[in-house]
Design a protein around this nucleic acid. Sequence first.
DNA 1: CGTCGCATTGAAGGTTGTCAATGAGAGTGG
DNA 2: CCACTCTCATTGACAACCTTCAATGCGACG
Lengths: 241, 241
Amino acid sequence: MDFVRKDVHNSELPVLCRSCESRHRGICGVLSPEQLVRLSRHSSRHGAGAGQELSGESLETKSYSNIISGVVKLSKMMADGRQQIVGLQFAPDFLGRPLRQENGVTAEAATDVELCSFPKAAMDRMIREMPELEHKLHEQTLNELDEARDWMLTLGRKTASEKVASFLLLIATHADPELETDCSDFDLPMSRGDIGDFLGLTIETVSRQMTKLRKEGIIIIDHNRHVVVPDLSRLADRAAI
Amino acid sequence: MDFVRKDVHNSELPVLCRSCESRHRGICGVLSPEQLVRLSRHSSRHGAGAGQELSGESLETKSYSNIISGVVKLSKMMADGRQQIVGLQFAPDFLGRPLRQENGVTAEAATDVELCSFPKAAMDRMIREMPELEHKLHEQTLNELDEARDWMLTLGRKTASEKVASFLLLIATHADPELETDCSDFDLPMSRGDIGDFLGLTIETVSRQMTKLRKEGIIIIDHNRHVVVPDLSRLADRAAI
DNA sequence: CGTCGCATTGAAGGTTGTCAATGAGAGTGG
DNA sequence: CCACTCTCATTGACAACCTTCAATGCGACG
């Protein structure tokens, strides 16, 4: 998969990077063409199936990744098995944590994902050399913090019905980031069980609230995973935004 | 309050900084003595009473602060008045958010607090000049993210009883950071109402769970605010850590 | 002593969780 | 092609937990 042109001119981008979102909105945006070439020499694209664990023993201990496509869920688990999803990451988010070890969080592919991974050591070195890179990581961390705090309000103070509506709205806005229309249409990146773990609810409650929203005409559900929202503002009302 | 020796030698620390925790564990730890002197020329110590709002219109728009003593609560509010506390900050945390505007979070003094404030502009300039400063801020942001995610697990998956125990444990560990003994003894930094807003519970539920813990001998309560924990491990069991 | 703010306690009701049964869809093998 | 199974989602009945509403208690302060 290490498909980078070897004869690339310094001022040219590696082929893989040209159409990559991370180059625009992600971490790689702060790298110069030469740096990109240098990093891409060690980087490799690869996929991971839904459900596959991305941190822990397997991947992340030795490498970091950009998410090229798909959704990654970050979760925490209690000793007795209770679980809470504490974050969702979408392309072009950076996966992994330089400078600091993970705090009991497990990363798992929620959908099939495509990753672009680089060895930990090379990345760590670049971060130490380039303050802009740390700045970019800091920005992502601030985003994650804002999202976590928004979700704390949802977890602590919203009803089950509002929680489910908030979740659907979150996915809708991430599916079409620059959405202008007031309708939306997307696939849920995870099962009812995962949604429950994200919202602090049981599967059954999630299911009941989804059917309630469906019967009220706020959403249309196809094949369990596909959702159509004819009027996003009505959904936003239910989310108590 | 601007009590800094004017004739200070470059290699000496400003008097105010000498005994300040921020110099050791906080933001100021990455500053050289000269930089400390430069910053301290514009900084001022001042207090704020419990309940006073620290961001919004008053303070933080024009300045950042280090918390010298006391506890600051960060909260989010919904349109209908429901409220969730999304973070607690203790000395020597940095208050304010360079590089990024706050995301609908209000900072309020939970207890009486003592702050050391600097003008936004001077701080922003130093951050741009000193990557170590941004690194330090990044570290604090990572800490806050870890805390937020820990709390998401508490909010989403713990019972009322476990929530209250978790809260008491949180305060106990922050009261004596380097605690070796298995007992602890502290003042709660906030009212039952605030605790409820932190835990996603009502005042009444908080109160009932506190009395339950009291009747079981896990905590002793004096004057509503003072708590003694004879055996922290028993409390930790209740927190389901 | 009366009032005010905060905390506790009690009773009743609602929301959500638990347990159990059923349904829907995908893949498998006869 | 049609059972068969497996997984995931839905639905129902009931119980538990937490909230709501209301009353009482307690300490501080005038």
